[in-house]
Amino acid sequence: MIYEALYNILIQKMPDVFIEGETLFINQMPAEREFGGMFRDTPTGIERDGYVTSERRGTFVFALRGNDYARLSSAIERVMEALTIHGVESGGYLIKNCYATLEPIFYQISLANMTETSVTFSIVYGKI
């Protein structure tokens, strides 16, 4: 799955922020996690090309949770930079294009005193 390839890119580019299995997740993040990032599917999912069967395109969301607004703001900007990708191979995929389509959205502080932010990305990729 493409998220594993993107996960590895973030682990490599942001080792001071993300620790494998502790602060970076795919589609589920433990509720008790005080700081963490997560790749999440969008309702529309990833489209399969009927003519170029190895190519995929679509959108995904990257979300961050924490209790320090400044840390979240800085981290999400770095995630947007790290996941701006053109022509990179990772995990058996060629990521042709990946980029944030919107500025980060910050959500209201929860009852657990946590803030969340998310960014939607567009991606085009294919299996190698």
Score class of each variant (00 low, 15 high):
25 F>Y: 13
25 F>M: 01
25 F>E: 00
26 I>Q: 04
26 I>D: 02
27 N>S: 14
27 N>W: 07
27 N>F: 08
28 Q>Y: 14
28 Q>I: 14
29 M>G: 01
30 P>Y: 06
31 A>H: 04
31 A>R: 08
32 E>Q: 14
32 E>A: 12
32 E>H: 14
32 E>P: 00
33 R>T: 15
33 R>L: 12
34 E>R: 14
34 E>D: 13
35 F>G: 02
37 G>D: 04
39 F>Y: 11
39 F>V: 03
39 F>R: 05
39 F>S: 02
40 R>E: 11
40 R>P: 07
41 D>H: 11
41 D>W: 04
42 T>D: 11
42 T>F: 10
43 P>K: 09
43 P>N: 12
43 P>A: 11
44 T>E: 14
45 G>L: 09
46 I>N: 04
47 E>W: 03
47 E>H: 13
47 E>N: 12
47 E>S: 15
48 R>W: 06
49 D>W: 07
49 D>G: 03
51 Y>I: 07
51 Y>M: 15
52 V>R: 13
52 V>M: 13
52 V>E: 11
52 V>A: 15
53 T>Q: 08
54 S>L: 12
55 E>T: 13
56 R>F: 06
56 R>Y: 10
56 R>L: 07
56 R>K: 10
56 R>W: 09
56 R>D: 05
57 R>Q: 08
57 R>L: 06
57 R>N: 09
57 R>H: 06
58 G>P: 00
58 G>Q: 02
58 G>T: 07
60 F>T: 02
60 F>G: 03
60 F>S: 02
62 F>C: 08
62 F>R: 01
63 A>I: 05
64 L>Q: 04
65 R>G: 01
65 R>D: 01
65 R>W: 10
66 G>K: 02
68 D>T: 11
68 D>K: 06
68 D>C: 11
68 D>N: 15
70 A>I: 06
70 A>T: 12
70 A>R: 12
71 R>E: 12
72 L>W: 04
73 S>F: 08
73 S>R: 11
74 S>M: 14
75 A>M: 05
75 A>R: 00
75 A>L: 02
76 I>W: 00
77 E>C: 09
77 E>M: 13
77 E>K: 14
77 E>G: 15
78 R>V: 07
79 V>R: 04
80 M>H: 00
80 M>S: 13
80 M>A: 13
80 M>I: 10
81 E>Q: 14
81 E>L: 15
81 E>V: 10
81 E>P: 11
81 E>N: 12
82 A>P: 03
83 L>A: 00
86 H>C: 11
86 H>D: 11
86 H>Y: 06
87 G>D: 14
87 G>L: 07
88 V>W: 00
88 V>N: 04
89 E>G: 08
89 E>S: 15
90 S>P: 09
91 G>M: 08
92 G>Q: 09
92 G>M: 09
92 G>A: 05
92 G>D: 08
92 G>H: 09
92 G>I: 06
93 Y>W: 12
93 Y>L: 05
94 L>T: 07
94 L>P: 00
94 L>E: 05
95 I>R: 01
95 I>E: 04
